[in-house]
């Protein structure tokens, strides 16, 4: 331990940097996954809108208007 602290090598810095970069990548990856947390105020979910419209036009999906929504007021 004593030797390790007082005999710092360039290779040690590279190793620490590699570990930190790996952790950063893991955190970024986890952050990009769809959130599981529940509760209000969820944002929309992007869908393949072209595929959606194609199937809507073909009648495979429905354009029936939903109940229980309102326009979002602009700030």
């Amino acid at each position: 331990m004593h030797r390790w602290i007082y005999h710092w090598h360039r290779g040690d810095s590279l190793f620490i940097g590699w570990v930190a970069a790996t952790l950063l990548l893991v955190v970024l990856y986890l952050g990009s996954l769809p959130g599981l947390e529940g509760g209000g105020g969820s944002s929309g979910r992007r869908i393949d809108i072209e595929a959606f419209k194609t199937r809507l036009d073909a009648g495979e999906l429905s354009g029936h208007e939903a109940l229980w929504y309102h326009p979002k007021e602009e700030p």
Partner: peptide, 15 residues
């Protein structure tokens, strides 16, 4: 215009 769904507790704001 974005809409707010009121159906479930998520109350999604949907662009």
């Amino acid at each position: 215009m974005a809409v707010v769904c009121e159906l479930c507790p998520r109350e999604c704001v949907i662009p």
